[in-house]
Structures are given as structure tokens and as C-alpha cells.
Simulated assay, not measured.
Amino acid sequence: MATSTSSSAAVAAQAVTARPAVEKKTVSFHNILLGAAIQTFEVSTLGQPFEVVKTHMAANRGDSIATSLKKTYARGGIAGFYQGLIPWAWIEASTKGGVLLFTSSEIDYRARVAGFSSSWAGLFGGVGGGVAQAYTTMGFCTFMKTVEVTRHKSPDTNASTWRIAYDVFQREGIRGLNRGVSAVALRQMTNWGSRFGISRVTESMFRGADKTRKLTTGERLAASAIGGALACWNQPLEVIRVEMQSQAKAADRPANLNLFSAARYIYQKNGILGFYRGVTPRVGLSVYLTVCMVFGGDSIKSYFSDKKKA
């Protein structure tokens, strides 16, 4: 009996020893800055045009993609597609990229140490990173970006974004400037939880039986793109967020919208399909953003980790 117990203990010890150690990808101060740089690059290139068209369609739910493009161009030509880029999108991007990279990496590592698979660890890291983004940097910035895109529907079309922000602050204080932050938090946690989680699942599918195989660049790009596209299942949260932050005025639009009253108003005006307005440009935005942050972020972290070992 004693021999059998000893043998079992030895087998268990060998199994523990055989399990590969969880390697933590280095996240240094330089790496956080690079995360911010990636996000700023993303929003300054294709990100903001996708964001503007997506926001326009979510706020103007009767407009098609073609109509949205025409109206956006009519508001300011090519520059119209970059409304809200300076300074709001830059402020948001330069901070939330670093917050996401640091928070998601730390949670991902802790989850893998606790025994979770890379897919679950990626999901947990994405959820934690998304929530951290929303409550540290994104509430005010998303509000101001939405103001930029929808303020032409305000009664005072000549009011500057700063003037509108000041008026909101005077009426409602900090809470007014962070209107819709709860919807932003829900969107971000489901966004990045889905993006990281689905990307990791796709990577595992590409690896097949050989779980240690290093993925090719094409496979990693494809995994990020698939994760970004499928993460757009939560488009209703995005439409609700835009409606809560929109400067549009209507006689039947309730004042001080919350998650539930905004959802009810959208359903009454546009039905179920209203919750999916702007999903096409958002898929484009999400794929581009996820490729930049998941593929690009992983590449940067691996680079610094390899450099430190060398």
C-alpha cells in the first residue's frame, strides 16, 4: 500500500514538473508607451474614419452607409472623417492603449498561472483591460468624440465642442461629461474579452494537436482579424452608448437617458434593427483595431521579451 502511494505521488510530481512553466511577457514602461503609440497610429489612420461613420449611423439610424459617407463628406470634406481626432481621439488613444496593454497582460499572466487555458486567460485579460479603459480614460473622451459628430444636430450649431462641454459641466457636473460611461464599460469589457478570447481560440485551432507550435505571421493576423470581426456581436451596446451621448434633440426623446431608457427609446423608434445600425463600419474598425492591438501588441511584447533574454 505504501509503495502504491509512493508511486502515485511520484507520478503526480512528474506531471507537475513536466507542465511547462508559464512565461510572463515583459510589460515595461517602454512597452506601455508603445501600446499607446500603436493605438494612436490606429486611430490616426483608418480608425477615426470608421469611428465617425459608425457613430453617424448609430445616431442617425435611418441613414445607409452611402448616405452617411455623403453627409460626413459634406460636413467637412476629407477632414470630416477625422472629426474628434484632435484632441479627443488622441488623448483617448494615447492613454487607453497603455492601460489595455498593461492590465490585460497582467490578468492574462495571473490567469495562466492559476491554471486557465490561454483562451480563458485571454478572455479574462480582455475583460479586465476593457473595464480599466472605460473608467480611467474613455468616459469623457467618447462623450466628446460623439459631441463632435452629432453636434450639428444641436439647436446651437455654432457652439464649439468646448462650449458644449462647458455647458454640460455647468448643468450636470463631472457625471454629465461621463454620461454613458456604464455603456462604455459594458462595451469595452465585452469588446476586448471577445477580441482576445476569440483570437486565442482561433490561434489554438490553427495550432491543432501541436499546442507549442509557433504560429506564422499570417495565422496570427488571421486570428486577430477573426477576433475583431466576431467581437461586434455587442453592437446594441454601442448604439445605446451613442444615443446616450448624442447631442440630438427631439420632442419625444427622454432627458437624462440611462441604459434602459435609451434602449427603450431606440426600440420604439427603430425596432430591433435599430440596435445594429453602424455594425458594418464597426466590423471594419474592430478588425483593424484588433490587428493593431492583439497582433501588434503581442509582437511588441515578444520582441522586448526576446531582447531581454538576449
Rank of each mutant, 00 (worst) to 15 (best):
T3E: 15
S6Q: 11
S8M: 06
A13S: 13
A13T: 10
V16M: 09
T17S: 14
T26W: 06
S28R: 03
F29Q: 04
H30S: 13
N31W: 05
N31L: 06
L33H: 07
P49E: 04
E51Y: 12
M57Y: 01
M57W: 00
G62C: 00
D63M: 10
A66S: 09
A66G: 00
S68K: 11
Y73T: 04
A74I: 01
A74L: 06
R75Q: 10
G76K: 11
G77P: 07
I78Y: 09
G80H: 05
I86P: 00
P87R: 00
W88G: 00
W90P: 01
W90C: 01
A93Q: 01
K96I: 15
T103Q: 03
Y109G: 02
V113P: 02
A114T: 02
S118V: 05
L123A: 14
L123T: 12
G125H: 03
A132V: 14
G139Q: 09
G139N: 08
F140S: 04
F143H: 07
V147A: 05
V147H: 02
E148R: 06
R151W: 04
S154Y: 09
D156N: 14
D156M: 01
T157L: 05
N158I: 06
A159I: 03
A159T: 05
A159H: 07
W162V: 12
W162Y: 01
I164C: 10
Y166I: 11
D167W: 03
R175D: 08
L177R: 12
R179A: 11
V184Y: 00
Q188R: 02
Q188M: 05
N191W: 11
S194M: 09
S194C: 09
R195K: 11
S204I: 00
S204A: 13
F206M: 08
R207V: 08
R213K: 12
R213I: 01
T216K: 07
R220Q: 15
L221V: 09
A223M: 08
A225R: 06
I226Y: 08
I226E: 05
A229W: 10
L237G: 12
R241S: 10
R241F: 07
M244W: 07
A250K: 06
D252V: 05
P254I: 08
L259F: 11
A262Q: 09
R264H: 14
Y267S: 13
I272P: 03
Y276S: 04
R277Y: 00
V279T: 11
R282I: 03
L285T: 01
T290P: 09
C292D: 04
M293I: 04
F295H: 14
K301Y: 04
S302E: 11
Y303F: 13
F304G: 08
D306C: 01
